[in-house]
Design a binder for these strands. Structure first.
Length: 507
RNA sequence: GGGGAUAUCGUCUAGAGGUUAGGACGAGGGAUUUUCAGUCCUUAAACCGGGGUUCGAUUCCCCGUAUCCCUACCA
């Protein structure tokens, strides 16, 4: 049978990197096995604080960004549509009714207060907490219903609970962890249908997984403990449960589930920061999966598809190492076509106000032409010089800022750089010489620029470093940056002369 | 409290009944010297503890310990 897997996010906000990794694993497995990758929305929790419809866009964007495109989801529709659980309420209600009629589930009239009191007592006594199965006894349930009916003057709300087997064990066949057994008597009578008519995850997942013919449930390890309850829902409904795959959790440096406390966890944040899709893909896959004895860590997406297997799944939690992600992103930036990186950098420059917004599509041709020549060409010349220094794209604004800002000594100059290099005795003659010689250049190339700078060192009889560094500071306002000659070349003759002159006048 | 899972350098991990326990990030050192970054070379750094099984266990088994996850009308 062909593999069918699913990613079933809840719209509780922008997806967590751990969830996105789960999506990647599902997608990879489907691709590798020539199977199907479905995505469905588990939006059955309607409480306002957890239901965040805008999160749906982030779910869509993250998958598209990574290129992990579902074979079927709410965007495409398809044979298993709808892929949105809130649109399938009658289906779940039917399933619940069927279970009740077969005696595998029952209606529970216990109020929240009763449940809370019960739990509090259990905790106080130090006994295992869980539903006491009060309403599993039909007479007691009916009595409770009557009592509440009299008190409230209307039909009381109820939920549907699964009647867990009271003995025996549930064996979970987990592909990465082997068989795990759970004692049924320790499992709770899980709520299947809530009083608002929405199903809980347990009912909805079982119904949908069965309806879609899911063969493997690949999801985070945090689901492992509750897996037997899901299995029992399948059993009660008379269906064969899928195979389970529980990759390890992604945790923070303190070993706890990765959360905001540890830093950014929302996938969208990484997209905004300028992490490349292939870097995030690569990095996330390697948190919990390994290519085995192949001693490398940089894999393209096709290479990962080729290698991916469930056997390579790791079984202990992995700490999310932001530094390593940055390193990996830097690797991919340098591997990438410069043109692509430039294009991806422009929005950051616009946002930082370093370059103006692009002219509107209906602007005059001259306007567009001017923009192209004065803004884009310059950006295209300047950004490549900093590519080898970039770890994330958003750093581009800091890196190339000095190329775009209006520098006029001493405004915009790094004070430390100035005190270190602008106080030397030979600064004035140096700048005078350079301004004169640069001005005389008919060809402005890194080579001709270098000739002038070397000539300056010779003429003034100072060390090369003693002309290089002051010149850099005078032209860029800072001590760090790309090689001086290409920097000046990219800056252009006009800007260079202007800046050097502004320094000479006031130094 | 109960249940489940997990345990190799600081971190991600490879590994096999006998290895100099390998690679990567990060850290230290060096080279390139025109700064920073990059690149290259290099150093330090690990098998949780105790019992077994075995000629031999870091590897297999058991116990302990530690950590995490679950224990909702959340997913």
């Amino acid at each position: 049978m062909s593999v069918r897997v699913r990613y079933a996010p809840s719209p509780t906000g922008s997806p967590h990197v751990g969830n996105v990794r789960t999506a990647i694993y599902n997608w990879l497995f489907a691709k590798k096995e020539g199977g199907h990758f479905l995505v469905r929305l588990e939006d059955t929790d309607r409480s306002p604080e957890r239901y965040v419809p805008e999160g749906i866009f982030d779910i869509e964007n993250s998958l598209r960004f990574l290129g992990a495109i579902p074979d079927a989801w709410w965007i495409t529709g398809g044979p298993d549509a709808p892929y949105v659980q809130s649109q399938r309420l009658p289906t779940y209600q039917e399933a619940a009714e069927r279970l009740i009629s077969e005696g595998k589930a029952y209606r529970c009239y216990c109020s929240k207060e009763r449940l809370d009191t019960m739990r509090a007592e259990q905790q106080a006594r130090g006994v295992p907490s869980g539903y006491d199965r009060h309403c599993r006894n039909t007479e007691r349930a009916e009595a409770l219903r009557q009592k509440r009916l009299a008190e409230e003057g209307k039909e009381p709300t109820s939920v549907v609970r699964l009647a867990m087997p009271l003995d025996g064990v549930t064996i979970l066949h987990d592909v990465v962890r082997g068989d795990i057994s759970y004692e049924n008597k320790l499992q709770d009578d899980q709520v299947l249908l809530k009083s608002d008519g929405f199903p809980t995850y347990f009912l909805a997942a079982a119904v949908d997984d069965h309806a879609s013919g899911i063969t493997h449930i690949i999801r985070g390890d945090d689901w492992l403990s509750s897996a037997p309850k899901l299995v029992q829902v399948f059993v009660a409904l008379g269906w064969e449960p899928p195979k389970f795959v529980h990759p390890p959790l992604i945790v923070g440096p303190d070993g706890k589930k990765l959360s905001k406390r540890h830093g950014a966890t929302q996938f969208s944040w990484f997209m905004e920061q300028g992490y490349l899709p292939e870097a995030l893909f690569n990095f996330l896959v390697l948190l919990g999966w390994s290519a085995g004895s192949e001693n490398r860590e940089l894999f393209s997406v096709p290479e990962l598809v080729e290698r991916f297997n469930l056997e390579g799944m790791t079984q202990h939690p992995a700490v999310f190492d932001y530094d390593k992600l940055k390193w990996m992103n830097g690797q991919y930036i340098r591997k990438s076509e410069p043109g692509r990186i430039i294009g991806m950098c422009l929005p950051y420059l616009r946002k930082a106000g370093l370059i103006p917004e692009a002219p509107a599509p209906d602007a005059k041709d001259e306007v567009k032409e001017t923009y192209r020549k004065e803004v884009l060409d310059y950006a295209r010349r300047v950004i490549p010089l900093e590519i080898e220094r970039m770890k994330v794209l958003s750093e581009v604004t800091e890196l190339v800022g000095f190329f775009f800002k209006d520098l006029s000594f001493p405004e915009g100059y790094d004070p430390k750089a100035v005190t270190k290099w602008m106080g030397m005795a030979h600064i004035k003659p140096l700048l005078t010489f350079e301004i004169e010689q640069f001005g005389a250049l008919t060809e402005w190339t890194p080579e001709t620029i270098e000739q002038v700078v070397r000539a300056a060192a010779e003429k003034l009889d100072v060390k090369f470093a003693e002309v290089i560094h002051p010149t850099r500071v005078a032209a860029t306002g800072q001590t760090v940056g790309p090689g001086l000659f290409e920097t000046l070349w990219a800056l252009g003759k006009e800007r260079t002369l202007k800046r050097l002159t502004s320094v000479l006048e006031k130094v």
